[in-house]
Amino acid sequence: MPNWIRTYVRLIDAINYRVGRFAMYLLFVLMGVMLYASISRAAFTPPIWTDEMGQFLLLGYFMLGGAYSLQLDSAVRMDLFYSRWSDRTRAIVDAVTILALIFYLVVLLYGGIESTAYAIEYGEKRRGLWQPYMWPIKLVMCIGITLMILQSISIFFKDLARARGKELS
């Protein structure tokens, strides 16, 4: 494998590891916001921003955490045949099929960019009383999807290496 591929894989894995570790702890921020919402609802008037903030956090959590979850290899596979193949066969099949996965993510990103552009152009706000702007969360989502694509390409290189009987990591 050429050096630039090694560098790419190392770099992307490292970036996504860090972003993912950050996203992982957003869980506690989400807990904090929801807890604050419930306490204030019981004690005084409900704050107007907690619901939307919670929704933004959840989306951020799984969009930014997506690439790291790929690293953790948590995505489910149907392994009726897969589990019986040799490591080499798996790598070859994976290297082909991951292109389809990347295609899906690219289409997703394309839609995300369009939607974000719309949100910026028209100053789109979320419905409700708080009415926060939508472009920041849409931007975060686009970043998350981009990181997923970069991670998938890294996985593609690793599959390719494995298919040739080598390890890349």
């Binding site: 790929l70 995505a75 489910v76 596979r77 149907m78 392994d79 009726l80 045949f81 897969y82 589990s83 193949w85 798996r90 099949v93 994976d94 099929t97 991951i98 389809a100 996965l101 990347i102 295609f103 899906y104 993510l105 997703l108 998938s152």
Partner: peptide, 14 residues
């Protein structure tokens, strides 16, 4: 596509 064993979300999305 699911039976190729690739990550399910990618195959369904594709």
């Amino acid at each position: 596509l699911l039976f190729t064993g690739q990550r399910m979300f990618g195959m369904i999305g594709f």
